[in-house]
Amino acid sequence: MDEQPGGLGRAIQVRRAELGLKRKELAERALLSYPYLSELETGTKAPSAKALRQLADALELSQAELLERADASPVRVNQRLKAGPAWGGLPSGSIATGAADLSGTRDSALELEQLGRVADIVAATVRAELAAWARTSLPALIRDEVRRVLDEEGRKSK
């Protein structure tokens, strides 16, 4: 099997979390069966072209954006680190060099992958919280600040 489904599965999970969707809700939105979506997320199956299109639509992304996220997924990055750079290496002392050195042992590679998963979950949670804040609290804060400025300007002009 291609390496892509692992990265794609993580990208689906992260975007689903960003949107605050449960797996069942995403399956319904994408018109896919729950078991099939589960296999896509766990990386045991690669999606058909039609399923990829349906998933991207349900995740409010273009197919290109979804695949780009899959390619940037920590799963894919870790796989590329293990394979080594095609162009001859990274500068010494860089974070990526340290990560590549870590991937030499099975336990360290597992820790790196787990760290990537935690980072994805934290990023998705932060994005979801910021989006909720922008929808709920931010408009009230802006309204209050506009009123304050207008009141202040009104007092100055009197």
Rank of each mutant, 00 (worst) to 15 (best):
D2G: 12
Q4E: 14
Q4W: 14
Q4A: 15
Q4V: 12
P5Q: 05
G6T: 14
G6D: 10
G6S: 15
L8F: 02
L8H: 03
G9S: 05
R10M: 14
A11L: 10
I12M: 08
V14N: 03
V14F: 05
R15A: 00
R16T: 06
R16H: 03
A17M: 15
E18V: 09
L21Y: 08
E25H: 04
E25L: 07
E25M: 07
A27N: 01
A27E: 00
E28F: 01
R29T: 04
R29A: 08
R29Q: 10
R29M: 07
A30V: 01
Y34S: 12
P35K: 01
Y36R: 01
E39N: 14
L40N: 03
L40H: 04
E41K: 06
T42N: 13
T44N: 12
A46I: 07
P47Q: 09
L52T: 04
L52Y: 04
L52M: 11
L55V: 04
A56M: 01
A56W: 05
A58E: 04
A58F: 03
L59W: 00
E60M: 08
E60W: 01
S62N: 08
S62V: 04
Q63Y: 05
Q63G: 08
Q63R: 13
Q63S: 10
A64D: 14
E68S: 15
A70P: 06
A70C: 08
A72K: 15
A72R: 15
P74Q: 05
P74Y: 05
V75P: 03
R76L: 03
R76Q: 14
V77R: 12
V77T: 13
Q79Y: 05
Q79T: 08
Q79N: 09
K82I: 11
A83G: 11
A83C: 06
A83M: 07
G84F: 00
P85A: 13
A86P: 05
W87E: 11
G88H: 06
G88I: 01
G88K: 01
G89H: 00
L90D: 14
A96R: 04
A96I: 09
A100R: 14
A100T: 02
D101V: 12
D101M: 13
L102E: 03
S103W: 05
G104L: 08
G104K: 09
G104I: 03
R106D: 15
D107A: 15
S108F: 08
A109H: 09
E113P: 01
Q114C: 12
Q114E: 14
L115H: 05
L115N: 06
G116R: 02
D120S: 10
D120M: 06
A124R: 03
A124N: 01
T125Y: 08
T125L: 10
T125R: 10
T125Q: 09
V126Q: 08
A128Q: 12
A128E: 09
A131T: 11
A131M: 00
A131W: 03
W133Q: 07
A134N: 13
A134V: 00
S137H: 09
L138D: 14
P139D: 07
L141Y: 10
L141I: 08
I142V: 13
R143Q: 14
D144G: 07
V146N: 06
L150R: 14
D151S: 09
E152M: 05
E152T: 04
E153H: 11
E153C: 07
G154V: 01
R155G: 03
K156Q: 12
K156C: 08
